[in-house]
Each structure stands twice: as C-alpha cells, then as structure tokens.
C-alpha cells in the first residue's frame, strides 16, 4: 500500500467547526453539513439547519457543537461513523473530517475538496461531477459508483483513497479519476462508461466486467482477467505518465506508490463493445 503525504491543512479566514456531542450507532443524515448551506449563515443559523437522527428530524445543533462561522472551511469531528452524506452536493469550499466518517461522503459534489483523515463508508463520491475527495484511510464499497437503478456514476473530479476500498470501485463511472493506493474488492470498474481507476495495491477479481470504455490500471498484483478481455500489447503508456505527473504535483500521492513503467494492455469487455482497457504493470521491472 502506498501512502498519502500528510499535507497540513491550511485554513485562510473563518471556519466552522462541528463537533459531535455523543457517540451513537443510529444513522444520521447530515447533508446540511455542506459549505453551500453555510453561506451567509451565522453560528445560530448553522445550528438550526436540519438533519435526520434515525427517522427523527432534528437540527445540527441537536447533534453537534457548532463553533465559528463562514462557509469556506468546515471541520467536522467526533464520532461520525454513522453520519451520512457529509458534503453531499457541495460546489465549493473545503470540508475536513478529522476521523472516520459514514457513507455517501461527497456524493454528487461538483466542486471543492473533502479530506477525511480516517476511513469512510460506502458510496464515497457517488455521482460526483467535480472537485476532489481525499480519504486517508480505507473506503467502503461503491467508491464513485452509480446508485442502483442509475446508469451513470461519477462524472468528473478526483477521489483518492489512501487505504483499501471495497467492491465496485468506479462502477458505471462516466468520467473522472479514482485512485486507490491500497487493494480493491471485486468488480472494480464494472460497467464503466469512461474515466480512470488506478489501483496501487491488489486489484480485486473480475475487474472491468461489462465495461464499455474507460481505463483500469493495476500497479500492483492483478487477478486473471475475465475471458472477455484480450491481450493487446506491452508498452509504456505516455498518457499514464501525464496522470502520474499530475498526481505527484498535488503532493498527495508519492511517486513510489504508483510507479510508472511497462504495462500489459488488455482490451475489453468484449461483451460490451471492447473499447475499455485494463493495464497491468509488468512486475518484472
């Protein structure tokens, strides 16, 4: 597994800090924790924004200590494992989650940045179309994927997971980049329409099943591919070097975590047109 450089977070100007009052396993829906919702709000108004605690409608102030004002920098701390939808639909600003966080982090976001210092639940960045999510720990299933019944998942932006991720990373994604520095579960890139999924660790079984286009890159160990993928050639993809340069420039990914080199190119899934590609790094280099 690679690592994410621990760049210190720099905050300019005002910030809002939300601290969970108590630990609970009861799910909380907190899509109101979003810089867009905090625009023009003072501390009191933020505390009055709605949330769901189980099926009960509450306010953020019922669940969190609210401190500060302003919309650009939001810091959320405390027990957040059961808190869902933080940063959902955000268009700008920054959210920092100081520990582990629940599902749907940054779902449908179109701009700004979310940094989770710990692990994140399922559906990180589902349907996102822009911005960046950085999860320094592990992520659950369906990172950047499409919700059930939807035809397209992630449509833009970047998700970087420092640890491992679960099943169906990038399922039906349409555009954007997902980087998992650790291992992934099965069906990474299943049904991909376009976009890129990079896996630094072990790529789970059946990657790219049903993919139409798009790119899955295995920098580490890779499974035997489905029989509907065909070997094309071994080469050094120049476009991949562009991605690696760009990622290195963010300071979030060390170059040793995703090493450049010679890759075996497989095209598929032939059941879905065969315009997708799986690149597997030649480990003999």
């Amino acid at each position: 597994m690679g690592c994410i450089a621990c760049a210190a977070l720099v905050f300019d100007g005002a910030s809002v800090t939300l601290t969970r009052k108590e630990s609970s396993s009861i799910p909380v829906e907190a899509d109101s924790i979003c810089p867009d919702r905090f625009v023009g709000c003072g501390q009191t108004e933020i505390a009055e924004l709605p949330a769901y605690y189980g099926r009960r409608k509450v306010t953020l102030g019922d669940l969190f200590e609210v401190d500060g004002y302003g919309a650009d920098n939001v810091i959320v701390s405390g027990d957040l494992k059961a808190v869902k939808k933080i940063g959902q639909g955000m268009t700008h600003g920054r959210i920092t989650v100081t520990g582990d966080v629940g599902p749907h982090l940054g779902a449908s976001m179109s701009g700004g940045e979310i940094v989770a210092e710990g692990a994140a639940g399922d559906w990180v960045g589902a349907h996102m179309s822009g911005g960046r999510i950085v999860v320094k720990g592990d992520a659950g299933h369906f990172v950047g994927a499409a919700y059930s019944g939807e035809t397209r998942g992630m449509r833009g932006g970047t998700i970087i997971v420092g640890g491992n991720a679960g099943r169906e990373v990038g399922g039906r994604m349409r555009r954007g980049l997902i980087v998992v520095l650790g291992d992934t579960g099965e069906f990474a890139g299943a049904g991909m329409l376009a976009g890129s999924v990079f896996v630094g660790g072990r790529l789970g079984g059946r990657p790219g099943a049903g993919m139409k286009r798009g790119t899955i890159v295995a920098f580490g160990e890779a499974p035997e591919l489905l029989p509907t993928f065909r070997y094309a050639c071994s080469y050094r993809p120049v476009f991949l070097s562009c991605y690696l340069q760009s990622l290195a420039a963010t300071g979030l990914v060390e170059s040793s975590a995703l090493p450049d080199g010679e890759f075996r190119l497989y095209v598929g899934d032939m059941n879905s047109g065969g315009r997708g590609e799986v690149l597997i790094r030649d480990q003999s280099e």
Binding site: R175, L177, Y235, R236, F239, Y243, S246
Partner: peptide, 16 residues
C-alpha cells in the same frame, strides 16, 4: 482523457 481540464487524445500509431 480529460486531465486537469485539458483533453488529451491518444491516437494509435505503430509504436504505441
């Protein structure tokens, strides 16, 4: 590929 707002085209040629 759309990378950092720049679209790159990958045209197949005989050396890659």
């Amino acid at each position: 590929k759309l990378l950092d707002g720049r679209r790159l085209w990958r045209v197949p040629v005989m050396d890659g």
